[in-house]
Amino acid sequence: MKKILNKLFYVLQLLFLIIAFAGTLYVILQMGNRLEKSIVDNIQVFIPFVVIFILHVINLIANQKNIKDNLFYNITACLAFLTIIVVAARAVFDHNLVLANITDYKIDFTYFANFIPFLNLMLYGLAISNVLLMFHVKEKKKIKEQIEEL
């Protein structure tokens, strides 16, 4: 059961990560259009996404079971990416936000901009915990695996 949940949340977090990145990219691009700024000026918003992507690749290549099989990590990542998706979706679709209706873009940029520090906090937090959880005692794990196999 735990393994199935693990797999489910692992796939979900990858899916949510892609959607969250796409949502953020869309809002930031529109924000840049409005202010006539290029995407390079807002590149710092995407750095934590890039860090998370790189860590995912490392986890895959190095087969970091300590992370991939960590249910709590997978659930937390899902929750963090889902929050980003919800905020991006509200900035675009929630027309009860009065500022969204004032500009022709129909996107509440202030609402999303207020969320960017939290976005950084969550993504950098995930990245830091990912790096810290990479360290583990190999012997202990091997014994555990052997017990599980038996």
Binding site: F72, T83, F118, L121, G125, I128, S129, L132
Partner: peptide, 18 residues
């Protein structure tokens, strides 16, 4: 590892709250 799990817990709390 303990620090990693603590950071993860804080991220969980923050994202859940938000």
């Amino acid at each position: 590892n303990l620090i990693g799990k603590t950071v993860l817990g804080l991220v969980f709390g923050l994202s859940f709250f938000l």
